[in-house]
Simulated assay, not measured.
Amino acid sequence: MSRELISSGSPFEAEIGYSRAVVCDGWVFVSGTTGYDYATMSMPEDVADQCRNALNTIAGALAKAGTEMTDVVRVRYILPDGQDFQKCWPVLKEFFGEVRPAATMISCPLMEPEMKIEIEVTARQPQQA
Rank of each mutant, 00 (worst) to 15 (best):
M105V: 15
P44N: 07
L110K: 00
F96G: 02
S8N: 10
R52S: 13
A48W: 01
E45F: 05
T57Y: 00
V75P: 06
R20Y: 04
S42Q: 12
A63P: 02
G26P: 09
D71V: 12
G17W: 06
P80A: 03
E98P: 04
Q128M: 12
M115S: 08
P101F: 03
F85D: 11
L79H: 02
C24R: 12
K116S: 10
V47D: 06
A54T: 13
I119Y: 05
V91M: 01
I117H: 01
A21E: 11
A14R: 07
E118G: 00
T70S: 15
V72E: 05
A129C: 10
E68Q: 08
Q125F: 06
F85H: 12
S7M: 05
V28L: 10
A59P: 10
E114F: 10
E112V: 03
V121W: 01
V28Q: 08
P80K: 01
P11F: 07
L110E: 00
E45C: 09
P80W: 00
R74D: 14
S8L: 13
G82K: 03
Y18I: 14
P44A: 04
V99R: 01
E112P: 01
G35Y: 01
C24N: 10
M115R: 04
G9L: 10
R124C: 14
A102T: 14
K116D: 04
A102S: 11
N56C: 13
K93H: 12
I78W: 00
G35D: 11
A39V: 12
R76S: 14
V91H: 01
V72K: 00
M43T: 14
T34I: 14
S19R: 04
G82W: 01
V22N: 07
C108W: 02
